[in-house]
């Protein structure tokens, strides 16, 4: 059964959000790789990779895992 009317529009909007999030995640992953290749090793590398990983985690928790629904069941993404 395919979505129709309002459902289709709502689904398309949600799918668009997913595409934006995955695009940012992909960019952050490539940035991680570029940082590792550029810097090589050391505390600065670990710090920058940690920041990137935390940013990616926040995006996944917020938009893909619907963390806000934990305290607001009717809200969130």
């Amino acid at each position: 059964m395919a979505a129709t009317g309002h459902n289709a529009a709502a689904e398309a909007k949600a799918q668009g959000t997913g595409l934006k999030v995955i695009a940012i995640l992909a960019v952050l992953t490539l940035v991680e790789y570029a940082i590792a290749v550029t810097i090589g090793k050391g505390p600065m590398l670990v710090t920058l990779l940690t920041v990137a990983a935390l940013a990616k985690t926040w995006l996944i928790l917020q938009y893909f895992m619907h963390l806000p629904k934990l305290w607001n069941p009717d809200g969130g993404h």
Binding site: M1, A2, A3, N7, A8, A10, E11, A14, Q15, G18, V21, I22, Y63, F64
Partner: peptide, 11 residues
């Protein structure tokens, strides 16, 4: 994510 969204909207 797309699978979850599709099921939630009946697709």
């Amino acid at each position: 994510y797309r699978a979850e969204t599709a099921f939630e909207h009946g697709n």
